[in-house]
Structures are given as structure tokens and as C-alpha cells.
Simulated assay, not measured.
Amino acid sequence: MIWRALVVLLIGVVGVAHAAWADIRDQRYVALVIGSGAYPGAAALTNAVADSGAIAARLHALGYSVMHLENPTQAEVMRTLAVLRWAAEDAQQVVVYLAGHGVMQAGQAFYVPVDALKRTQFDPPAQSPTEMQMGGLSQTVPLSAIVQALSDKPRNKIIFFDACRSVVSPIMDGIGGSRRAMEAGVAIAFASAPGTVAYDGQNGHSPFAQAFLRHVTQNAPPLEDVLRRIRVDVVRQTQGVQVPWVRSSMLQRAFVQPMSSAPNG
């Protein structure tokens, strides 16, 4: 009820771009892709927006109705999540891809919008926020909020977190989330291991985005095999420095591509 009320309040505020997304209301396969690179100073990322554009195009080619944001603020991300929850209410599968900066606190992952950082809060060599002095993590987007936006309906919900998981406070609650159990039917593919960075890349795309584009195709195998191939690919590209992780509560065999185009067997 809270999310539904929020959508009613925000539909008139979101604007023309989001109004066009109402067309996805009756679609079975829906995706949200966000790319953030216009961070201040040395925090800027060269490839994140290009990553999101390529991922959005790939998902659209596979049959998804795609919502795509470039360099959104925290408020814009939260408004879009409200619209996504409404528009994808009856979708069979929802995919979210996040490219940009991320952090961890107390075992939880947070996506960092472009308005959440200050120039003094960044360590350029490590490519990850080292301090969050602007009110803690209040200007970030908790990964848990994204999971909740996908709702607890029994459908496949797949999140690709192509961002760092650098720790800004000691991990208290274990890997990947809070003490609350993760809802069923969710798979989260992290580009990096807990407490480590995810690299922006030097060849036009991040290592994780390159691996995604290489392995998420019309004839891709089941999700579990795709995620394993992505992990091997990223480890190879980074010579073992970056190791993707997966957290899953999937209840059935899943494919990233719509089932109509999934291979048999």
C-alpha cells in the first residue's frame, strides 16, 4: 500500500519521460537500467553511462520493455523505482542493471547516485568512496529498496550490481544484505566480492558489462550458467583481481532472455 500511494503521488511529478513508460504496464518482461558516471572531480566514471546504454539496447533486443536512466539523482532513482513497481506489477520477469559507484555498510550494498558524492570523499586510485560525510548514506539508494520495488510477487527478479562494494563501515550482518531474509525469486549478481572494487574498464566498457554483453544473448543458457560464465570472464579480464559474487533465492530455473527465445534443454 505504501508503494502504491507513493506512485499515485509521484506520477504527476515524474514528467513526460516517465509517462511514456506507462506503455510497459502490460508487458511481461521489464527492465530498468541505470548508468551513473558524472560524479564530481576524480570520482567521474568514463564507461558507466556507455555500459548502461549498451545493456539497455541488449535487453530491448531480447524483448524487454526497458526504462533507462543516465546520471540520475537519488530523487530521480527513487521516483523511477516507484513507477517501476507500478508498471511492472504483472510482469513475469524484471531485470535491473546498475552501473556506477557503490558502497557497503553493515553488510548491505548501496548504489551511489551522482548527487551523493563530494570531491573530498573519493580515493581516485581505488575508485571507491572512502567517506560519506554528507549525512551518512542518506543520499544513496539501498539495494534493499530496489529489491522491495520489484515486489514480493512470485516472479523472477534479477539484479546486476555493476558497482563497487567498498566498505564504509565494518561489516556487521554478513554478506550482501540485512538480517531480514531475502524474498523468494530474487537473484543478485554483484560485479565484485564484498569489500572490493568493481573496475570501470579501459576498453569502452567495464569488465562486468563486457562479460554481460558477451554472454547474455538470444541463445544464452540458464541464468545460473550465465552468471558463472560472467564470473569466469571477469576474473580472466582482471587477472583475478575482481571476482563477481551471486546471491540467489530463485525457486525455479531462470533465463535472462524471455522464455520464448530461451534455448531448449
Rank of each mutant, 00 (worst) to 15 (best):
A42E: 15
P194G: 09
G107C: 03
Y111D: 00
V30S: 01
I171D: 05
V16P: 05
W21V: 10
H18Y: 08
S138I: 01
P113S: 13
Q108I: 00
D152T: 05
T140G: 07
F255M: 11
Q121R: 08
T196K: 12
Q148V: 06
S169G: 07
D225M: 15
G265F: 12
R165E: 01
A187V: 12
D26Y: 11
A75T: 11
H68D: 00
V241N: 09
R58A: 04
G177M: 12
C164F: 00
D23T: 15
M259S: 15
R231L: 07
P221V: 11
S151I: 03
I230R: 04
T73N: 06
Y97R: 11
V256F: 10
V95G: 07
P142C: 04
D152Q: 05
D90P: 11
D123K: 07
G240L: 06
V226W: 04
M134H: 09
E131M: 12
S192H: 09
P207M: 13
V256D: 00
G102V: 03
A145D: 13
V8Q: 08
Q218V: 09
N264R: 13
Q257G: 15
S65G: 14
G136N: 14
Y111I: 01
G15K: 06
V95Y: 01
L117I: 03
P258R: 07
K118S: 15
P221C: 06
L62W: 08
D23L: 14
L69V: 03
S260M: 14
R253A: 13
M67P: 01
R25I: 15
T73K: 10
E183V: 12
L81N: 03
A126I: 03
P124E: 09
V16F: 12
A48Q: 09
A43T: 08
V95N: 04
A61T: 08
G135E: 11
L84S: 05
L59P: 08
P40D: 13
A5T: 10
G102R: 02
G176W: 00
L62V: 04
H101W: 01
S178V: 05
Q92W: 02
L9I: 10
E89R: 15
R58F: 02
